[in-house]
């Protein structure tokens, strides 16, 4: 009971692990490129929860928080580039289904 009510590092880690797995699953199951991107965001959030939990319970320093901020910014940049590319793909093929990108193979 104490483990349930007494929130500690492990609670956050387990939560992040589930987020990570859900994100991975999303990335494998979605056909839509934007869906995959959303799965990526889930995994990045899992990483951030980890980083901040470690920063709080582990080191007590801010490097975890700083890294988390960098991750957030990188995620935004990545989403911007990815969406521009998806938009371009959509303009060519009128879809964002990754399975439709089948010209390049072999």
């Amino acid at each position: 009971m104490n483990h349930v009510l007494h929130i500690g590092l492990n609670h956050y880690l387990v939560l992040a692990a589930i987020l990570f797995a859900a994100g991975l699953c999303t990335m494998t199951l979605k056909r839509n490129a934007i869906g995959i991107l959303i799965g990526v965001e889930l995994v990045l959030n899992a990483a951030n929860v980890n980083l901040i939990a470690f920063s709080h319970y582990g080191t007590g320093l801010i490097d975890g928080q700083v890294t988390a901020i960098f991750v957030i910014v990188l995620a935004a940049a990545e989403a911007a580039v990815a969406l521009a590319i998806f938009l371009n793909f959509y303009n060519r093929l009128a879809t964002v289904d990754v399975d439709r990108g089948d010209r390049l193979r072999g």
């Binding site: 995959i36 990545e78 580039v81 990815a82 590319i85 793909f89 060519r92 093929l93 990754v98 390049l104």
Partner: peptide, 12 residues
């Protein structure tokens, strides 16, 4: 089209 496709695979 090939460029668009390549970029999409790359970025994903």
């Amino acid at each position: 089209r090939l460029g668009a496709e390549a970029a999409m695979k790359y970025v994903v």
